[in-house]
Design a protein around this nucleic acid. Structure first.
Length: 882
RNA sequence: GCGGGAGUGGUGAAAUGGCAGACACGCAGGUCUUAGAAGCCUGUGCCCGAAAGGCGUAGGGGUUCAAGUCCCCUCUCCCGCACCA
């Protein structure tokens, strides 16, 4: 090994006599396809080891895409984040599961069929093939062969059907008539979660209509409490997402109280829901929603009421359309009827009011104007009584109506409850109502059961039939009512989606027009039966796909429990925040159901969730309508896949929105070219190529007698390793990781002369370039593979262990100490790092006073304090002077 | 209205309470070239200036030896929820 002598002139060492200008230029268009072809030929390159391997596991998951046929920058970014992490964890020795698949059912396939006359299946599979090529071009390290799934294939969707049957058995799936959200454009039903501000989530300008339909529902409300309480045990999820889910579930504890309608013996009592039963003595009217059942009854005999109610409903519809719902003026109409307050026997007028929601609570409230803002506003308008029943603990003269109050406020004018504290009264009054049979403590939720029926073709067929002979369901099928609804046996699965089908724009389920599909036999009696023609919401597909990944080729079960239990929970889930409610709450529900079925041991699907920011351009989210879409293909063509994905990590920290600037991609490409040139220049000269020596054989003591230049480079190198390693384990600021690599490369360039003259040893150069290459793996795998090869390695760079930072080598030889005077920087002094700790403070004080810039600021002042501050990050001096 | 996030150069951004603006883009000047491109070098928060200096993290106040960072108030922008009784 040549430690002492001058390093041979780098450029000439290959004997070719080449000079600088002939060093090959970085050409990703040549490098990347070459490596990609090599990788694609190895289907198990990124396969995880079996669950029995005994290695620590790491399940790295990104949300699966809808196969639109075009990868967009949001995908590129999302998957670049996940891929960096997966590659890092592999190099750290983890058994990494990094799967990918396709959320392949859904309406666009049917729209495309209408437009292009292409069957949905064909269109979808073509898109998948197209997007897969795009993703492979970018070099993501997915285990395609072992995990790839497409939810539109029977191998997958049969398990949707299987789960559905399990849920039917357990009463978790049921059928009932219900008012549903109907999007005329989709010609199908939407779940509550898919209605955004009264409009369809897919058609932002389309008002959602209400229709009465027979629908299948999944009983997610059974898990409402667990879904809510579980959020408190999920510190690895963003607070934002947990808050959104909490609000969505909307648990509200209160009481129901029945108010009898005066002099109407046959009319059922009005049940109101309230969270403030303690204010019931302050109730001065009853308010019903326009759609309340009693109102529907009364309008039959009261034309005036009928027109007022109709106007209210019409007004709400308009308000919804214009987006003004929520701030339309409160108004109402008196019904002329009255009800009795069961607590004090008072007679209260019954009104119908436009601010009462039919689908929350009971659709009826007791109005307490003194203590509720909305009721107060309403009462003011119509001159209804305002009766205060809670005394605030502060000077009441200064309070404006309606009165809010503190928790320790007490009741006044409330009969036998007068003087009781608010919270105590709530408990006791609810119990009193229950004991006397006119109320109870109750909890309501904003969350509703999940309607999963869709009147569409391109989805999972619901595995139920309607027996013409009117069979009731078999024993144990408690979710199925009599009337001929029969669950298919498991042996009848999968219920295949017919492929020859005509898609038309007419409403109703397209499957209903396929007699071969519809007409079947009853599994119980063998008589004629009709199949369910609705298909499942596509959110069913994505509710459990990540379990399938652990055993994607299983043909006898959705997955093997042992495998799932090894891999779950997902260690890191990465995706867009737009799925904070829909997908992520359904997934949590499905996990709990699977746990209760005994399939898995975990109760939550993912340990940690990361929501990346949007990719924007010219200040707006990329979208076709805005015409600001940047094509990943074009970027790859111009700058290479490495530069494109690396820019996606460099331009902003992953959780923030990212403004796409093409000049930035060009900048990254230039940086990679610099790295390429550097390695190209020194690779032929790297010692271990000639001597077959590897860096791990270079003992640290060989760096001990380093020249200052070599030591400085190694110091930066190890600081860089430490910085990146720490970031992967913590805050994920990959932008600063890449910046750190740039600093390292800049520094190596600055030391070029020292490297050429032999001042920096060949062993050091080898260590620098090898390690630099390894550090690039998570961010730019193509160039990393190429450089590794150029450095003479024949091993797979992705299987190399991640470099370990050496604290000794990373330590500064000289410490810089900022000196402040009254907190403002005066100068920076330098001291040798090996100064004895005991003497250091004295030395620092002396040095700081000796500095002329400091002295200049001390003229005419007195030193009050001379502080030397010790921090892990370094030392600092502050002179407090007067 | 409620909840969450953010506000730092021309731009994207950096900064465990301790040197504000790392790294990059852009721009300017230089070098190389017949010329250009690429590369390389230098400069680049603002103000005045030859220099020394002064001012600067939306605005105002506070805590601290020390505040972009912590606390209080105000303003602006983005996201989510929105008459939830």
């Amino acid at each position: 090994m040549d430690e002492s002598g001058t390093t041979k002139a780098a450029v000439a060492s290959d004997g070719s006599g080449s000079d600088k200008n002939e060093v090959q230029r970085y050409n990703p268009a040549e490098i990347e396809p070459r490596w990609q072809a090599k990788w694609d030929a190895q289907p198990n390159l990124y396969a995880a080891e079996p669950h029995t391997s005994g290695k620590p596991k790491f399940y790295c998951l990104e949300m699966l895409p809808y196969p639109s046929g075009q990868l967009h920058m949001g995908h590129v970014r999302n998957y670049a984040i996940g891929d960096a992490l997966a590659r890092f964890m592999r190099m750290r020795g983890y058994n990494v599961l990094h799967p990918m698949g396709w959320d392949a059912f859904g309406l666009p396939a049917e729209n495309a069929a209408l437009k292009n006359n292409t069957p949905p299946r064909e269109w979808t599979l073509k898109n998948i093939a197209q997007m897969k090529v795009q993703m492979q071009r970018i070099g993501y390290s997915y285990d395609w062969a072992g995990t790839e799934i497409a939810t539109c294939l029977p191998e997958y969707y049969r398990w949707n059907q299987w789960f559905f049957l399990k849920m039917v058995e357990r009463g978790l799936a049921y059928r009932r008539s219900s008012k549903v959200n109907w999007c005329p454009q989709c010609a199908t039903v939407l779940a509550n979660e898919q209605v955004i501000g009264g409009c369809c989530w897919r058609h932002e300008d389309q008002i959602v209509e209400q229709r009465e339909l027979e629908q299948w529902f999944l009983r997610i409300t059974k898990y409402a409490d667990e879904l809510l309480d579980g959020l408190d045990t999920m510190p690895g999820w963003p607070e934002k997402v947990r808050t959104m889910q909490r609000n969505w579930i909307g648990r509200s504890e209160g009481a129901e109280v029945e108010f009898r309608v005066t002099a109407m013996a046959n009319t059922p009592a009005i049940t109101v829901f309230t969270t403030r039963v303690d204010t019931i003595f302050g109730a001065t009217s009853i308010q019903l929603a326009p759609e309340h059942a009693l109102v529907k009854e009364w309008v039959k005999t009261d034309a005036q009421l009928a027109s007022a109610v109709d106007a209210m409903i019409a007004e709400q519809k308009v308000a919804r359309e214009t987006g003004d719902i929520g701030n339309i003026e409160k108004h109402g109409v008196a019904t002329g009827k009255t009800a009795i307050n069961p607590f004090n026997g008072e007679t209260l007028p019954i009104w119908v009011a436009n601010y009462i929601l039919a689908d929350y609570g009971t659709g009826a409230i007791m109005s307490v104007p003194a203590h509720d803002e909305r009721d107060f506003e309403f009462a003011q308008k119509y001159g209804l009584a305002v009766k205060r029943v809670v005394a605030p603990n502060v000077d009441t003269d200064k309070l404006a109506l309606p009165y809010g109050e503190e928790d320790d406020a007490v009741l006044i004018d409330s009969g036998e409850w007068t003087g009781e504290a608010v919270l105590e009264a709530q408990e006791r009054m609810a119990r009193f109502a229950e004991e006397h049979g006119f109320g109870k403590k109750t909890t309501t939720y904003r969350l509703k059961d999940w309607g999963v029926s869709r009147q569409r073709y391109w989805g999972t067929p619901i595995p139920m039939v309607y027996c013409t002979n009117g069979h009731a369901a078999g024993a144990g099928h408690e979710g199925v009512k009599a009337g001929g609804v029969v669950a298919l046996p498991e042996s009848a699965l999968p219920v295949l989606l017919p492929e020859q089908i005509e898609i038309t724009q007419e409403g109703g389920s397209p499957l209903g027009k396929v007699p071969e599909f519809v007409n079947t036999t009853c599994p119980v009696c063998g008589g004629p039966a009709r199949r369910e023609t609705d298909t499942m919401d596509t959110f069913v597909d994505s509710s459990w796909y990540f379990y399938r990944y652990t055993d994607a080729r299983n043909s006898t079960a959705p997955f093997d429990s042992e495998k799932a239990n090894y891999w779950f929970p997902i260690d890191q889930y990465i995706g867009g925040v737009e799925h904070a409610i829909l997908h992520l709450i359904y997934s949590r529900f499905w996990t709990k159901v699977m746990r209760d079925l005994g399939l898995i041991a975990n109760s939550e699907p993912a340990e940690r969730l990361f929501t990346q920011g949007m990719v924007i351009k010219d200040g707006a989210k990329m979208s076709k309508s805005k015409g600001n879409v940047v094509s990943p293909d074009l970027m790859i063509e111009k700058y290479g896949a490495d530069a494109t994905r690396m820019y996606a990590l460099f331009a902003a920290p992953p959780d923030r929105d990212l403004e796409w600037q093409e000049e930035g991609v060009a900048g990254i490409s230039r940086f990679l070219a610099r790295v390429y040139r550097l390695v190209g220049k020194y690779a032929p000269n790297v010692q271990y190529i000639e001597h077959g020596m590897h860096a791990d054989e270079i003992a640290p003591e060989q760096f001990a007698g380093q020249t200052a230049a070599g030591a400085a480079l190694l110091r930066t190198l190890h600081q860089t390793i430490a910085k990146i390693t720490e970031d992967f384990n913590g805050r994920w600021h990959f932008n600063t990781c890449i910046a750190a690599i740039m600093i390292l490369v800049n520094e190596i360039y600055a030391a070029e002369a020292a490297m050429d003259s032999g001042e920096v040893s060949s062993a050091t150069i080898a260590e620098l370039l090898r390690t630099l290459t390894l550090l690039l793996v998570p961010f730019a795998p193509f160039i990393a593979a190429e450089l590794w090869k150029d450095l003479g390695e024949t091993t797979d760079v992705f299987q190399q262990p991640w470099p370990v930072a050496d604290k000794e080598l990373a330590r500064e030889s000289e410490i810089e100490i900022p000196v402040q005077v009254n907190g403002k920087l005066a100068t920076v002094i330098k001291l040798a790092a090996d100064t004895d700790e005991a003497a250091l403070e004295v030395a620092i004080k002396a040095a700081s006073l000796a500095d002329e810039k400091v002295a200049a600021r001390l003229i005419g002042k007195t030193i009050v304090k001379h502080l030397v501050i010790n921090k892990p990050s370094g030392k600092l001096v502050n002179l407090v002077v007067k």
